[in-house]
């Protein structure tokens, strides 16, 4: 709840996105060229140490947004300000410093973890690339990262393919943390996991936010989890943010039809009154 207190204090936002537009060239089957607006003027701000959840149906542009923020795609128009500086206008040198501060975690960590590497190598790589650590510091860094995400040190010899889905997701988070990011973009990072494992990772995220002042952009189609983790929720529909506000408010008094539909579709365990009392 410390988090909410800081927002009020007229702080500088960590991330400010203004009028972001992403247009994909596309050609219909008939052969006439068509432009597809994946992002249609998206603007929002995220303050340090808070979580913004982005929800919406498939194809609403959530992943495109993540890709633009992580510099995996270049936006057609608009600007992205990170820690007070415009990302697109950074010079080579500054960009190499700033970019590692934004890390992305995807739904399927298996696709971004090299199966031929061991857990040790996966974690050592970002540390080695920073070129400022000795061998010993790297070893110590790896064990503290493992501890931080709750992985036991005896898995360092295994390959990512030999880990469970939850362990792989923890490993992906650990690797992202190695670069000491300020902003973590989680693109459907929990969607492929079981409920019980989702809860474990969600707890880890909350804990890291407490201890490291992490800022999250939490992309999901699971509104219950979004509401649990986020300070604010932004609802996307066809490339636009149609509604944005305090998580509680969006849940209780949704203003847009899209939001109401999304809320209505959330499957709930409504048959569990005895649980609520506990």
């Amino acid at each position: 709840m410390k988090v909410e207190a800081t927002i009020g204090k007229n702080m500088q936002p960590l991330l400010r996105v203004e009028n972001l537009v992403k247009r994909y060239a596309k050609q219909s089957l008939a052969g006439t060229p068509e432009e597809f607006l994946a992002l249609d003027g998206v603007s929002f701000t995220v303050f340090p140490g808070t979580t913004l959840a982005v929800v919406g149906e498939s194809g609403s542009g959530k992943s495109t947004l993540a890709a633009c923020l992580a510099c995996l795609e270049s936006p057609t128009a608009g600007s992205i300000w990170f820690a007070g500086r415009e990302i697109a206008k950074l010079e080579e040198r500054a960009s190499r410093q700033i970019r590692p501060q934004i890390q992305v975690i995807f739904q399927d960590p298996a696709s971004s973890l090299n199966p031929r590497w061991s857990v040790m190598e996966v974690l050592a790589e970002p540390l080695i690339l920073q070129r400022k650590f000795t061998r010993e510091e790297i070893d110590r860094g790896i064990s503290s990262l493992l501890e931080r995400v709750g992985l036991s040190p005896d898995i360092v010899e295994r390959s990512p393919t030999e880990l469970s889905g939850g362990q792989r997701q923890r490993l992906a988070i650990a690797r992202a943390l190695a670069l000491e990011p300020k902003l973590l973009i989680l693109d459907e990072a929990l969607s492929a996991l079981d409920c019980s494992v989702q809860a474990q990772i969600a707890n880890l995220l909350v804990e890291l936010q407490g201890s490291l002042e992490m800022t999250y952009l939490f992309i999901t189609h699971d509104l219950a989890m979004a509401a649990h983790l986020a300070d604010e929720i932004a609802v996307m529909d066809r490339g636009r943010i149609v509604e944005q506000g305090q998580a509680q408010k969006i849940l209780k008094q949704p203003e847009q039809e899209t939001t109401r539909q999304l809320l209505a579709a959330v499957p709930r365990l409504t048959l569990v009154p005895p649980l609520l009392e506990q």
Binding site: Q167, A199, A202, A224, H228
Partner: peptide, 28 residues
């Protein structure tokens, strides 16, 4: 335990946001 680990922001009174979910400990 499985049912408990699901976030229940919709149904619970009060603000349970960012609290610890009662996850099942240990690895599957």
């Amino acid at each position: 335990a499985l049912f408990h680990s699901i976030p229940t922001v919709f149904d619970r009174p009060g603000n349970t946001r960012k609290t610890k979910l009662p996850a099942i400990l240990g690895d599957s």
